[in-house]
Computed example of a mutant assay.
Amino acid sequence: MAHRSRAERVTSVAALDDPTSRAVYDYVSLASAAVSRDAAAEALGVSRRIAAAHLDKLADKGLLTVEFRRLHERAGPGAGRPAKLYRRAADEVTVSVPDRRYDLVASLLAAAVTEAVGTGAEVGETVNRNAYDAGRAIAAATPDLLEALLETGYEPHRSDGGLLLSNCPFHRLARQYTDLVCGLNLHLLRGMTDDSPAAFRPVLDPAPGRCCVRLEGPGPVG
Rank of each mutant, 00 (worst) to 15 (best):
P218K: 13
D179F: 12
P202A: 04
A14K: 08
F170G: 07
R101V: 04
A40I: 08
E155A: 15
L146F: 13
A90I: 09
G153E: 11
S5K: 10
G162F: 05
L108Q: 02
A89I: 01
R6T: 15
R190P: 07
L189Y: 02
S32T: 11
G118K: 02
A52I: 01
A40C: 06
P218C: 07
G135I: 00
R22A: 11
L188A: 03
E42M: 12
T11H: 15
Y102H: 11
E67C: 04
T142Q: 13
Q176R: 15
D99H: 14
V28S: 01
N128P: 01
A83C: 02
V105E: 12
R175F: 14
A79W: 03
Y154Q: 06
L58K: 02
K84Y: 00
L63I: 10
A121Q: 11
E115T: 08
L165P: 05
E122A: 14
D103A: 12
A148P: 12
E155H: 13
A106R: 14
D56L: 12
K57D: 11
D18Y: 04
P156D: 02
V97T: 14
A79N: 03
V113F: 03
A23W: 09
E151R: 15
G162R: 05
L165G: 04
L150Q: 15
R88A: 13
G209K: 06
I138E: 11
L30V: 07
P206K: 11
R69P: 05
D160W: 09
S32Y: 05
A199T: 06
A39P: 02
T20D: 02
L16W: 12
F170P: 11
G78V: 00
M1Q: 08
A131K: 03
V105M: 11
S47I: 06
V46D: 00
A90P: 06
R74A: 06
R101N: 14
Y86S: 02
G62C: 04
A79P: 07
T94D: 12
V95F: 04
S166K: 06
K61R: 15
L64F: 04
V123D: 03
D60Q: 14
Y102Q: 05
T119W: 08
V97H: 08
C211M: 03
E92M: 06
R88D: 07
R136F: 10
A33K: 08
N185C: 15
F170T: 05
T94L: 15
E151K: 14
E8Q: 15
T11W: 13
A34I: 01
R74W: 03
E42Y: 09
C168Y: 02
R87M: 04
D195Q: 10
H54D: 07
H171R: 14
P143L: 10
D160S: 10
Y132T: 00
P143G: 11
A141D: 15
H171T: 07
G45K: 10
S196I: 07
S32P: 03
D18M: 04
R101Q: 15
I138S: 08
G62K: 05
P98D: 05
V181C: 04
A59W: 11
L184I: 01
L189N: 00
V10P: 08
L55F: 12
T20W: 10
V97L: 13
E42S: 15
V213H: 00
S29W: 14
E67G: 13
Y154V: 04
E125C: 05
